[in-house]
Design a protein around this nucleic acid. Sequence first.
DNA 1: ACATATACTGTATATTACACACTATCATGG
DNA 2: CCATGATAGTGTGTAATATACAGTATATGT
Lengths: 226, 226
Amino acid sequence: MAQNDEKIEIESFQRRYKPQYHVTTDAAVFTIKDEALHVLLIKRKNPPFKESYALPGGFVEADEDLDRCAARELAEETNVKDIYLEQIGAFGNPSRDPRGRVITIAYLALIDWNKVNLAADTDAMRAEWLAVKRLPKLAFDHKDILESALDTLKDKIKNTSIAFQLLPKEFTLTELQKTHEAVLGMPIDKRNFRKKILSENFLVELKKTKMVGAHRPAKLYQFKEK
Amino acid sequence: MAQNDEKIEIESFQRRYKPQYHVTTDAAVFTIKDEALHVLLIKRKNPPFKESYALPGGFVEADEDLDRCAARELAEETNVKDIYLEQIGAFGNPSRDPRGRVITIAYLALIDWNKVNLAADTDAMRAEWLAVKRLPKLAFDHKDILESALDTLKDKIKNTSIAFQLLPKEFTLTELQKTHEAVLGMPIDKRNFRKKILSENFLVELKKTKMVGAHRPAKLYQFKEK
DNA sequence: ACATATACTGTATATTACACACTATCATGG
DNA sequence: CCATGATAGTGTGTAATATACAGTATATGT
């Protein structure tokens, strides 16, 4: 009886509620390259916004969770899995996509660009790292999404250990500091930075050093697992 | 030419991308009642989850922004406008709604329950304030949404001035402290609380007092506009 | 005037944030 | 081999913030 009610209700649901929209995920994938914050963008091959740059993303598939979609799209675009990926919000302005109503769920991701072999997929002319400081106009409302992602990123890098996603497994404190500086866009005092980072107990000091150039070698650290 | 490309592309878009989903907004509307945190819930009149409690929400309309939808649904359910309303994320598990693929954008809202005249709308048996401490099973994934909203709320009440949304225009410091305690679920030292709140410079001290009971009257404050 | 109920207030201590400058260690080239 | 150059590494004093904690003030009701 109640079982039957459910069935009738569910069947009539499709008829009664017409508005159905496309749903996508878009990812703002950041990296540090040449000591500057870069974001992964796609040059669009097709209209709308043909030849504009856009955040990589795509349509949510039928039985796919949102997070999974974001991870899949990112894996498809960048060939990388198991990276930091976090939802930062939904963008659903009715006119954000000229093709129709498309609601997008935005994600933030960080990677070490050295671990990625950029390859444009079928919808893109190419995939590129562009410096966040000097960006061209972006397709859709991707500028808004990017700014939102950047706000979240700045917040997170100050309060969590996500920065390690931007670095190789073993790194020096100077390298870690440079990533913080690139993200926050400001210099940080070396001594205070080290005191703070070390007090957070995220790091393990290794018994190796990194030697580059004619000067004192730097100790290597790695992120403490779990 | 490029103009034409756009047209063709947009027209073919509908055919090529079939997956279209329902999109809703749901709001976790909190209030303080009897010195305890309560959330506004709807008792569902129809399947699925008939007679279960659920967060108020509804379908995004054709030309409606997400925020606007959340505000409208909330206004429809509660008769209140111009209140604090903030997106807290998208929930899109494929099986979260037995009727089909429904992606919901969740919002957080705060109101003073005295300003609201609760009235069930057509889809609900009734709308009620339920104490967050003792909640029944909720419909869909609304328990997850609620927990997420609660996390955001705790964070915001510590770091912003949103608590004022829970209070009447004029209030005493003790009343403000009680709202913090109810949200955070822990007692707060009176002197430290006052020091902190007053140092934040959000408040204007009024030249009135509030007299209740046989004891010293309390000074009234109000939130400093802009 | 006394009981009682809540408003109101200050100080000492610990923690955290911030400003700031010199020594250590390597490679290189004269 | 030593002087230079380049980056690694380190400590202290001060300010701001967070926390712990207890007694006085002012109203009403009897």
